[in-house]
Amino acid sequence: MTSIANTLKPPYYAVIFTSLRSDDSSGYDEMAVRMAELAKMQPGFLGIESAREQIGITVSYWSDLESIKQWKMNAEHLGAQQLGRERWYRSFKTRIAKVERDYEF
């Protein structure tokens, strides 16, 4: 993910996933790619941006709260969440925010 998400005119929603990785990275990269592909197929998905240094931050953008709820409950996504808790993350936090305004250069 090396581009800035092209979102709708606000308002829309951002899901901000911040994580600290564990030492076990087996299968992580493949799952991250799969989750990005799967999210793109979900109704209401607008885009995704991700960066990793000492902490990882992934922001996905959604048209409405119902779309976020459906994504959270996607069966394949639920499996990835479980693997994250068991294997890939020391800790993480998810925040959901309403984007009221945006601008760009």
Rank of each mutant, 00 (worst) to 15 (best):
V15L: 11
G47L: 09
G56H: 13
L8K: 10
I16G: 06
N74H: 07
F45G: 01
K69N: 05
L83G: 00
A14T: 03
D29T: 03
G56Q: 12
R34N: 02
L38I: 12
D24N: 15
D29I: 01
E66W: 03
S60P: 04
W71R: 03
E49I: 07
P43R: 10
E86Y: 12
S63Y: 10
A32S: 10
Y89Q: 03
Y13S: 00
V99H: 06
A39I: 08
P10E: 11
R87V: 05
E86F: 12
S60R: 09
Q81Y: 06
Y13W: 12
Q81I: 04
R34G: 00
T7Y: 06
W62S: 01
D23R: 07
G27T: 09
K69M: 01
R21V: 06
I55C: 04
M73P: 03
G44C: 00
V59K: 05
M1G: 15
G79F: 02
L83I: 02
K40H: 08
V99Q: 05
R34Y: 11
S63E: 14
R87D: 00
I57Q: 11
E53A: 14
E104K: 12
T7I: 06
A36Q: 05
Q82K: 15
S25E: 15
D23P: 08
W62D: 01
K72C: 06
D64E: 13
K9A: 10
Q54G: 11
S91W: 14
K72P: 07
M35C: 08
R87N: 01
R34P: 00
H77M: 09
L38W: 05
T2P: 12
R85V: 08
E104C: 02
K98C: 14
M73R: 13
E104L: 06
E66F: 03
I68E: 01
E86L: 14
Q81E: 08
D24Q: 06
L83T: 05
A51N: 13
R87F: 03
E49S: 05
A36S: 02
I4E: 11
G47C: 08
